[in-house]
């Protein structure tokens, strides 16, 4: 492999694989908003019902 292609490979790996590691660590440290806006119990119930329907997953 040439120097420039190795450099490009490293840049791509740092951005993409590094980005994955960084975003996982970030999500693990900050899993949920603390406090946040008030949620009506009816809305929470509505959410739970909706979660049981079949729905598209993040895919392709």
């Amino acid at each position: 492999m040439t120097g420039i292609s190795i450099a490009m490979m490293i840049v791509a790996m740092i951005i993409v694989w590094g980005g994955l590691i960084a975003s996982i660590l970030f999500l693990r440290r900050n899993p949920e908003v603390v406090g946040g806006p008030h949620e009506d119990p009816d809305l929470v119930l509505d959410d739970e019902q909706r979660a049981h329907q079949a729905h598209p997953t993040r895919d392709t």
């Binding site: 980005g19 994955l20 975003s23 996982i24 970030f26 999500l27 900050n30 899993p31 949920e32 908003v33 946040g36 949620e39 809305l43 929470v44 959410d47 979660a51």
Partner: peptide
């Protein structure tokens, strides 16, 4: 869920 952590999980 209404309080789902949208952007952080979107990044992952």
């Amino acid at each position: 869920r209404r309080k789902a952590n949208m952007t952080s999980s979107g990044l992952v």
